[in-house]
Design a protein around this nucleic acid. Structure first.
Lengths: 116, 116
DNA sequence: CGGGTTTATTACCTTGCGGTTTTATACCGG
DNA sequence: CCGGTATAAAACCGCAAGGTAATAAACCCG
């Protein structure tokens, strides 16, 4: 299912620490300790967050000796935005149809005949 | 904090049942039983999902006798899209800077022929 | 009033999340 | 080889999510 990707992506985004990590990674690669520095939580907690981001495909990890630098992959973000945009346009389309109906009613009331 | 809104919005979107409910509501108001019909889960489960969507501000509920029709509010969606777009543009901006650096390096190499 | 319909509430279960501390692993440099 | 550094893994905790079944509450209609 493609739905699982959205599940994991939205779930990954639903945490402020993880969003901050992503924002930091938007500036470029970073190691775990670099990522952990701004936060008041422990290093294993950050590693867990990274694993969540990795499972969502938002983060890819490399290897540089002891370090495991993380870098971004925005592909899942694109999928999420696509879903949101399609959803929003679907709901707006509905309002356009509603507007059309209201316009028809107005036209009929004002005596103008057959237009649809 | 404005972050809580994002937390709740992304968390609400991280469930396929809730995304389906939202897609259904994009077509117009619906009652709980109407929303529950397509799913194999019980009515209280749907009511719980609706409460999650309501807490995220994505759904507003009315009253029509026994019925509690749900309708959409896309405002939190807009916030989520805003965050995603800003994030994506931030990461892309970084790649532009990287491109600029690489171009500089190339220019220097081609110009001064002063390699090491 | 009383029965039917719609929805919410309650109590409960299981699973997973976000955090901790502690311990193990892997690697570098002197 | 040894000490320091960076990261992962394990075991545990509290708590909330997502589900169930059963019951209550609110409302219409005959």
């Amino acid at each position: 299912m493609d739905s699982d990707v959205l599940d994991r992506t939205f779930a990954a985004l639903a945490d402020p620490t993880r969003r901050a990590i992503l924002a930091r990674l938007a500036q470029g690669e970073a190691t775990v300790t670099e990522l952990a520095a701004p936060f008041a939580i422990s290093q294993p907690a950050i590693s867990k967050h990274l694993k969540v981001l990795e499972r969502a495909g938002l983060v890819v990890r490399g290897r540089d000796a002891q370090r495991r630098p993380s870098r971004l992959d925005v592909a899942p973000i694109r999928l999420a935005v696509d879903w949101l945009e399609e959803f929003r346009s679907a709901s707006e389309e509905r309002f356009q149809r509603l507007d059309a109906v209201l316009a028809d009613l107005r036209a009929e009331r004002d005596g103008k005949s057959d237009d649809h």
